[in-house]
């Protein structure tokens, strides 16, 4: 089985291989810009700058599959062959959720489906989690187990390369100069993973996982008004935009009198107009009701709808919050 195939490759050999692939693929990988990891287009010039041993990039992985704004009618015909390097497990989990929404139900989103087919996802083992990360306590492992085509664990001068799909196997079929993985290297990988897990757990003393069920039914704004920090929410939508699993979208008609043309744009359930109907009435008129909705959606509704929580613990909603609201603190107060 491809899933279990694991190899060792030196950093130099990997970079040589990837360099050749830039001819056939549009490749993106995390590169440090002013101290932050951003997905950047990879060329032969910057291939050595790709970072494999830190954490998730600033942008969520969803931007490659579900961009902020795109034409959806008519659907886009041609997509480039894409390779995305550097997704951590929180983002892979986000992709799993997006798959459930956009392709696994009765109705398939045409652009998303094609982008998914045309893209190879090369994930990494997160080795330097941020203080805002809370993957483990919310039930997401700190390292990839599935949902990748290839996973790379960065070691000192090379990688443990694990195949996760036929697509990944095909991508490296002309890869030479790799070797089998020794049990010592597997042990090294285990230690790397345990270290990351430990850091995340130490940063998060409160165990959300066991208590998250208590959120069920907390519709009333009175529960949420008690949490002082929520008043700092400026309803900017940063948390929803940065979230790897937020899927809310709106459609806008840009056709003309006798032809149909539509674009699909991200929306945010925190915007006051989000659920407002033509009559002017809204089922969630206050900030507290909208704030509650976001949390209920993440930790309850998504589970009812798709069998999975809508939060992967990536922490972007914390690090990107203009109101400096720490979601973990909110959850802790709410569920205590």
């Amino acid at each position: 089985m491809a899933e279990t195939e694991t190899y060792y490759i030196t950093k130099k050999n990997w970079e040589n291989f990837l360099s050749k692939k830039t001819n056939d693929y549009s490749i993106f990988g995390p590169i440090l810009i002013e101290g932050n990891l951003h997905y950047e287009k990879v060329s032969q010039l910057n291939i050595e700058n790709i970072i494999y041993d830190k954490a998730r990039p600033i942008e969520p992985l969803k931007i490659f599959f579900f961009p902020f704004k795109e034409k959806i009618l008519p659907a886009i015909e041609q997509f480039p062959n894409l390779v995305i390097i550097g997704a951590a497990n929180c983002d892979l989990k986000g992709l799993e959720i997006l798959d459930k929404v956009f392709i696994e139900g009765d109705y398939k989103d045409p652009n998303y489906s094609k982008r998914r087919e045309n893209t190879i996802v090369i994930s990494i083992d997160c080795q330097n989690p941020y203080s805002t990360c809370f993957c483990e306590p919310i039930g997401t492992r700190s390292y990839p187990e599935k949902n990748f085509d290839i996973n790379l664990t960065a070691l000192k001068d090379g990688f443990i390369l694990q195949l996760g799909s036929e697509k990944g196997k095909k991508f490296i079929e002309d890869l030479k100069n790799f070797s089998d993985v020794s049990s010592e290297l597997i042990q090294e990988r285990k230690e790397i993973r345990e270290k990351t897990e430990k850091i995340v757990k130490e940063n998060n003393k409160f165990n959300f996982f066991n208590k998250i069920e208590k959120i069920k039914g907390l519709y009333e704004k009175e529960y949420w008004k008690k949490i002082k920090d929520i008043a700092n929410c400026v309803q900017c939508g940063s948390c929803t935009s940065n979230c790897p699993s937020c899927v809310c979208l709106l459609l806008e008609d840009i056709g003309d009198k006798d032809y149909f043309k539509k674009i699909k744009v991200w929306d945010s359930c925190l915007y006051p107009g989000y659920a407002r109907m033509a009559s002017g009435a809204s089922p969630r008129p206050s900030l507290y009701e909208r704030y509650a909705n976001r949390f209920l959606c993440k930790y309850w509704y998504m589970f009812e709808n798709f069998g999975t929580k809508g939060c992967t613990g990536c922490g972007r909603c914390i690090s990107g919050c203009i109101g400096k609201i720490d979601k973990r603190k909110v959850l802790e107060e709410l569920l205590k």
Binding site: V101, F102, G105, D106, Y107, D109, Y219, V247, C248, L249, L250, L251, D267, C269, Y274, A275, R276, M277, P283, N293, L296, C297, W300, Y301, E304, N305
Partner: peptide
């Protein structure tokens, strides 16, 4: 009745609790 865009369970605007 709720605000609705997609009609197919993607856009999430029409949720009443967890019900689409």
């Amino acid at each position: 009745e709720r605000k609705m865009y997609c009609g197919v369970g993607h856009c999430r605007h029409c949720l009443i609790g967890e019900l689409f």
